[in-house]
Simulated scan of single mutants.
Amino acid sequence: MLKLDEFKELVKDFSGVADFLMVYIAEAHSSDGWAFSNNYDINQHKGLEDRLSAARILVQEDPLCPVVVDEMSNCSAMKYGALPDRLYVLQGGKVVYKGAMGPWGYNPLEVRAFLEKMK
Rank of each mutant, 00 (worst) to 15 (best):
L4E: 07
L4A: 09
L4Y: 03
D5A: 14
D5W: 01
E6V: 03
E6T: 04
E6H: 10
F7M: 08
E9S: 13
E9M: 04
L10V: 03
V11S: 09
V11Y: 03
V11E: 06
V11W: 01
K12R: 15
D13Q: 15
D13W: 02
D13K: 15
D13H: 08
F14W: 08
V17F: 01
A18T: 01
F20C: 04
F20G: 02
F20Y: 00
L21T: 08
M22F: 08
M22E: 09
M22Q: 12
V23C: 13
Y24A: 14
E27C: 05
E27G: 01
E27D: 05
E27P: 02
A28V: 05
H29C: 05
H29A: 06
S30I: 01
S31Q: 11
S31K: 11
S31F: 04
W34F: 06
W34S: 05
W34H: 07
Y40N: 14
Y40M: 11
N43G: 00
H45W: 00
K46C: 02
K46F: 03
E49I: 03
E49S: 09
E49C: 00
L52P: 00
S53E: 10
R56S: 12
R56W: 01
V59H: 00
V59P: 00
Q60C: 00
Q60K: 07
E61S: 09
D62V: 04
D62Q: 04
L64C: 11
P66M: 04
V67N: 05
V67L: 01
V67M: 05
V68P: 10
V69A: 12
V69F: 09
M72W: 02
S73V: 06
S73A: 13
S73T: 14
N74G: 02
C75T: 14
A77F: 02
A77H: 03
A77I: 04
M78W: 08
K79G: 11
Y80S: 08
Y80P: 14
G81K: 11
G81M: 09
A82L: 07
L83K: 12
L83F: 15
L83S: 12
P84G: 06
D85F: 00
R86P: 01
L87V: 12
Y88F: 15
V89Y: 04
V89K: 06
L90K: 02
L90M: 13
Q91F: 03
G92S: 09
G93K: 11
G93E: 09
G93A: 07
K94W: 00
K94S: 13
V95A: 10
V95S: 09
V96P: 10
Y97P: 14
Y97A: 14
Y97E: 13
K98M: 08
G99E: 11
A100G: 13
A100M: 14
G102N: 06
G102M: 03
P103T: 05
P103Y: 04
W104D: 13
G105S: 06
G105R: 09
Y106G: 03
Y106A: 03
Y106F: 15
N107T: 06
N107V: 02
P108Y: 12
P108N: 14
L109W: 10
L109N: 15
L109K: 15
E110L: 09
E110G: 15
E110H: 03
V111K: 04
V111I: 07
F114H: 12
F114L: 12
L115S: 07
E116M: 13
E116G: 08
E116N: 14
E116F: 02
K117N: 10
K117D: 12
K119G: 11
